[in-house]
Design a protein around this nucleic acid. Sequence first.
DNA 1: TACATACAC
DNA 2: GATGGTGTATGTA
Length: 646
Amino acid sequence: MDPVASSQLTESLVKRLAGPSTGKAGLAKDQTEINRIIAEASKGSKFYENEKKKDKDLTERIARILKLRGEAIEGVDLTKIEHHVDKIIIDLENERDLSQVIVHFDMDAFFANVELLHNPTLKGKPFSVGGGVISTASYEARKYGVRSGMPSFIAKKLCPELILLRSHFEWYNEESNKVFTILRRYDPRLSAAGCDEGYLNITPYLQKHNLTPGECVEEIRRTVHAETNLTVSAGIAPNMMLAKICSDKNKPNGQYHLAFDSKAIIDFMGDLSIRKVPGIGRVNERLLESVGVKTCGDVYTHRAVLYLMDKQFGLRFLLRTYLGIASNEVKPYERNERKSIGAERTFPPLSSTKDMLDKLEEVAAELESDMESSGWIGRTVTLKFKLDTFQVFTRAKSLNHWVNKKEELFAVGKELLFPELPTSVRLIGLRVTKLKDLKASTSEGIKRFFGPAQQATSGSKRKASDIDEDEADDASVDQEEHDSDDDVMPGFHEQDEADIDPSQHDVDDDEELQIIQPLANIRKRPPNSVPGTSISHQLTLRSRSKSAGPSRSHGAAIAEPSTTTSTPSETHTCPICNEALTSNNTSLNEHIDYCLSRDAIKQAQGTSTKGNKVLSSGDTTKEYALNGFKRLKLRPDPPVKSKRKG
DNA sequence: TACATACAC
DNA sequence: GATGGTGTATGTA
């Protein structure tokens, strides 16, 4: 009980042990007591020790970041930088596209509720689905702090009456297919993000049926419930990121409609924990927190520091987040987007070579089977292994021929594993990349109608020429379906989801009219905004971004005037060197970036830069800063989700 | 290309 | 009594 009892444990470690689904979703009542029990149950295990080390590493990394920050802001006129960032914000604001109505839907406690369909006597009881690790907990179980990703033995401690059910993937798959089939009536190009959630662009549907978004989504949810007896929550917003955040708002069995208005969106984001943003996980949450960013609104407050530490944090990603700008391009997953295929298995730690090879062989066999049935071969094989200490390693080898056969996968795996012996492992996996599609686009059926002249991949199906033998199997080749949802179910495990919180009741509609933010002149862009939200670096992105991406040809829809948002040339002053510059933002930013590093170099050399504000004092620090900038990393860019399909 | 990290589901 | 599996993106060397 006494909070100090869990003494030695730092707050961050306790939180870490509580697992990744903490914080993303709403929490149950007394989280600290729950966390204490979890930490207590974990203590002393190898898992615990490993988490402790990771926590320590992260803490050290934060210390380095803070040092960097101190060096970066020293003597710099932050006001000027803020002013400069404000200009970037105006540019970004011009990317905002409010023309598409995007819906994110998310099945409530999916696996648990499917189990309920098959066994109604579970109703009202705390139960969970999964094996050693819990996939989904019923809402009753969540009250006790039981969550996905939690090992069952800990869940039992939190809730001794907990009923542990084993998974029935066939059932989930079946229900998932039903749900997706229903939803495709509203947008045939729906984008699945797992077996229990996804995105729709209902703009054309709304036009055709003369419905408001709220009405339409109510109808969708009603229909899903009527036809499957499952409940679904949904968010309605102008882009995918916002829609996803919104679907969490009134979960379970609710919907939330964000006003399609720049100011309302910025207000909405303002209070939002940065952790709720897709792409911000536990690590980035802590890194950002260390520089004072806890909410999306804090991004604005700290924009100058984030600008100076762009390499660490990714300024543009964060600014987009702050503004609530993201991709609204909803499209189905396509086979040719696949990058890898793999298999891995966890087991009680093994240290005998023979045992390990047996496992490796099993994994290879499984991978062969998957690759064959789904029609892939590849050229790079990566072995993954986890020691009994929970440390994870990978070893890779690229080949000059295509592989998908068990024997070969096994052989390469062995070759990669041997140098690591002797050791004790608890997981072995194989993954193949540099893929080639054996079912390459021949029976393009429906796909032809969408998207521009895509891959000019030659039509010949299965060129067996590249492989040693011609797979006898391929009965499947012709039947290339119009969509891939008959494939293996994407995610095996449902992941976190909001907890119950009967109190919530956000107003659900857009009675807000626009009150323009001082920031920007709000301007609409044609459908389909935010080009390349998943591209690599901000600055790179910025210079390329302006093109209006290809619009979806979604039947109805809205015309697409070409947007040539030429950034006007203005005069700016570099906040570092004070030089007056006439240029657009892109080159100005480049100048400043250059200026920053030049400054760092000069400082390190003890030379002074003309008229600079970055001042002397402990010169050596700058050298660190420079090294630090190069060395340290972090930060995701992509607000965009990746889809997958088995 | 090889490897490590972070993240999502 | 001992903490999952599949896949993507990205930084760095």
